Amino acid sequence: MYKKFIKKFFLNPIKSIINKYYKYIFFYYKFYKKIPLLKDNRFQCNWKDLHPCLSDATATTGFDFHYIYHTAWAIRQIKNFSPQKHIDIGSSLYFITALSAYIHVDFYDYRPVKITLSNLNSQKGDLLSLDFDSNSIESLSCMHVIEHIGLERYGDSFDPQGDIKAISELKRVVKSDGRLFIVVPMGEVSRIQYNAHRIYSYELFTSYFYEFKINKFSFINDSGNFIEFASPHDTYNQKYGCGCFELQKKS
């Protein structure tokens, strides 16, 4: 009985802690041994400045498949379109800052961002009530945004139809023959993962854009593969892919 008590309440917890933190224990031991070499009169090297990064020694560099691919895709598509100016509603800051390197970008977000860069103008905007005339915008993007509208994730009000209202506003402001670059989570089945996002089927999402033709559809599947020239079939058997659309408003 005594041995079982010792094992359960002392040995097992200690073993668990060692298994969990052995990398850190080994790290601190190695650091102690290397202090004389690190102190070479160029830098200070103190225990208080330790900043262990123990999960970065991977065989390949990891990345977020959705955000790396869809932003690279959009920049290429907009470059090919070559508008005079581009307007973005709430997309990735990495996207708008990179895009502004070669084209003027007006960026609008419900939570405005304070970024100071040439060719980039940032303002507060409400996707449910855009302050633009109808049929006035040549080039517009809204990527990985509408799936969140009305689900309260970012402090917005609850509205189950928020995404449809946002889509209506985007469609309203694009001019004839203008382009709308839009990205949403996409899978075989339309579903809501409250309060994170909606996931659309290809058929449901495209049904909202009968006034537009699809110039290009690309897809990032569940395995992280980027399919530049995708078809609806590529979304089948997928749970959380990423659909990238270049849409052109019909005259």
Rank of each mutant, 00 (worst) to 15 (best):
N119S: 15
L50C: 04
D56C: 10
A72N: 10
K79H: 11
V105A: 07
T97A: 05
W73H: 08
V105N: 05
L99T: 01
F95C: 12
A72R: 10
S118F: 09
L117I: 00
I87H: 12
H66N: 07
I75N: 10
D109T: 11
N80R: 11
H66T: 02
D109S: 12
Q84S: 11
T60G: 02
D88F: 01
N121T: 09
A74M: 14
I96E: 09
K114W: 04
V113L: 06
S122V: 14
I89Y: 13
A72M: 03
I78M: 12
I87C: 14
V105K: 05
A74N: 11
L120I: 02
Y69S: 03
Q123I: 08
Q77A: 09
Y67K: 13
A74V: 01
S55K: 14
T116N: 14
Y67H: 12
Q84A: 08
S91R: 11
H86F: 08
I87R: 11
A72Q: 12
Y110H: 09
Q123R: 15
T97D: 03
Q84H: 02
F81V: 00
S55A: 13
I115E: 05
K85D: 01
F81C: 03
Y102T: 06
D106A: 14
S92E: 13
D56F: 11
I75R: 15
T60C: 06
D49Q: 10
H66K: 04
L117E: 11
V105T: 07
L93K: 13
I78Q: 08
D64W: 12
I75C: 12
F107W: 00
R76H: 04
H104M: 04
T61I: 11
Y69D: 01
P52L: 08
A101V: 00
F107I: 00
P112K: 09
F63W: 08
S100N: 06
G125H: 08
T60W: 05
L50E: 02
F81S: 01
G125A: 04
I75F: 06
C53S: 05
T116Q: 14
V105R: 05
F65G: 00
I89W: 12
A74Q: 07
S92Q: 14
L93Q: 12
